[in-house]
Design a protein around this nucleic acid. Structure first.
Lengths: 339, 339
DNA sequence: ATGAAAGCGCTAACAA
DNA sequence: TTGTTAGCGCTTTCAT
């Protein structure tokens, strides 16, 4: 390319990177580049600069609708900064996660967004973060040097949800909860119990789920089997399990919310596509992504920063799946002449 | 690393790539590599080899559940071959698609999987494929040198679906169809009409949708508004629109399948999560991905191959949304004593 | 069988 | 301001 323009490669490089040169040269170079459709080789730039302008995204599975939304938001945010995303599915398996980390490490991505399989930082990742590989973890508190964390306000969100259910008149509230190890899941579980307690209620039961549709379905079956079930509302730790619970109800002739209310957490798009539409706590993937990208970029530039945690606000989305069984809220009846 | 082993870099390189060396050297090198946790720099390898071991994946939006499943399947298949995936959302906008192509081109991905915004090959892509950038397109017939195509058997699939509906006794079948430009969509639309005709029926109406939930909802509203509607079944060109139609019915007190049957195309996971579960034509994302990866890898190695088209079989999935209104199939009643 | 050296395409230090 | 040169980490002749 420089040959066509009749200048040295360094001059060409300078022009392309907007460094002052004489107008004459400038034009020669731009014309030549235009004519050839020349685009600088990102690989060579990356090798030279020690920076690939690429981030890794390591999640259990993009085909999970919630992770799909998160991935989409992250890709959008990165593309606007000219950063590419290398996608890896860990399949929720430790060995596969290791394989992904190897792949991403080899490709020299500048940093990593991850929803880890384990609560703890993978050992192979540990020495990499120690050598300043920037990592942002979602939902799971990966303690470690150089690991930032982005989380929804799980506690505030679940608090709102329980308050809502109680206000709607539900009193026998069961929970499809997360097992140990997932910080976000544990926070949600504990807060549900605490919030119930603050209303003078006790949990109507807790089943541990694994965040899949199937486990939500099975848990609902557990709570609602037999005529003696007293459960009148179910809170799931995520929407996917809540949708599974809805499906169980539908298949079993249990009416939602007439016989039992169901609520979730996340607010995936499809949560408003099911019938009845699902009441849930919204965590906005765009906000999560924005924070995560900002954290990763800033750590890339300043690797020594102390680990940070960002908590994103949640908003309760009330939909049909938790309408009051009596048809109207029991408390919080709005004044007819406010202000 | 070579320094620690006390050998030359070329020897180290040979060992790591499994080229015969003396056992003594071999051990020295492996030990040193082990000790340092050494991993070859993929960027340097890529620059040297002119091959990055990376493919681009350009789709409208990963947060669309169907594309999420496709992306997941592609990533899985590529990871097994040690190939990384760079993900880009085109947002279904031509300008954004161009931006993605630029990004992917700069990163020197070895090839590209794409679900294009347009039916035609983007002009900027044209000269790249001409210079042997391997491309596999899904669903859309991107004519062009060096572009292979993977498609579901849209015609066979729709044929099965229409046969099923007619067998169930539906006679007034409307269609939420694709506009022009999308080869797969056009195939589906035409085949529905043709299949109806072969049963001596005429379409009860066609509305053009854009494959979103919302457009399915709106189309159902169009077909089912007013008491005079005679439509007793709706075929949507994809599941997302079908789910939108289901939602409209649910919101409007229209019972599915009692008042109207609804069917889709794709068989996303969530299509069996809605109530009633959706009858649909399954195209298996794993099979699509396997074919696509094989095509892209083979073209990467032999760029001059003539363009190929692969058609993947579809399988009708009958679920609750198209049960016969009379409660039992009108024809094809199974014999009680087969054999 | 091993080592030395060139070069992939780029940028940054140095020279002119 | 421009050109020359070295070098990012690797693979691959070419000598040894």
């Amino acid at each position: 390319m420089a040959l066509l323009a009749g200048v040295s490669v360094s001059t060409a490089s300078r022009v392309l990177r907007g460094i002052a040169v004489e107008p004459a040269m400038d034009n020669r170079v731009r014309d030549a580049a235009e004519k050839l459709g020349y685009k600088p080789n990102g690989l060579a730039q990356a090798l030279r600069a020690g920076r690939s302008n690429t981030f890794g995204l390591l999640i259990p599975d993009v085909s999970n609708p919630w992770f799909g939304e998160l991935a989409s938001a992250i890709e959008d945010a990165c593309r606007l900064r000219g950063i590419g995303i290398v996608l890896c599915n860990s399949g929720n398996r430790a060995d596969q996660e290791e394989g992904c980390l190897d792949l991403l490490w080899k490709q020299h991505v500048d940093g990593l967004f991850m929803v880890s399989v384990r609560g703890q930082i993978p050992s192979s990742l540990a020495h990499r973060t120690r050598s300043h590989w920037p990592v942002v973890a979602f939902d799971r508190a990966l303690a470690g040097p150089g690991v930032d964390v982005v989380m929804a306000d799980n506690i505030g969100g679940m608090r709102q949800l329980v308050d809502h259910l109680v206000a709607q008149g539900y009193r026998s509230i069961a929970q499809i909860a997360s097992g140990a190890g997932l910080e976000a899941g544990v926070d949600r579980r504990i807060e549900v119990d605490r919030a119930l307690q603050s209303h003078g209620l006790r949990s109507a039961g807790t089943v541990i789920g694994d965040f899949t549709f199937e486990s939500g379905y099975a848990a609902a079956a557990h709570f609602l089997t037999g005529d003696h079930s007293t459960v009148d509302a179910i809170i799931a730790a995520n929407d996917l399990m809540a949708v599974g619970a809805l499906q169980y109800c539908s298949n079993s002739g249990i009416r939602v919310p007439h016989d039992v209310a169901v609520a979730g957490f996340d607010d995936m798009a499809l949560s408003s596509w099911v019938s009845p539409a699902l009441t849930t706590v919204r965590q906005d993937p765009t906000l999560l992504a924005a924070e995560a990208v900002e954290l990763l970029v800033s750590r890339m530039n300043q690797p020594e920063t102390a680990p940070r945690t960002r908590v994103i606000d949640c908003a309760l989305q009330v939909r049909a799946s938790t309408l009051s069984p009596s048809g109207a809220p029991i408390s919080h009846t709005p004044t007819l002449h406010p202000e």
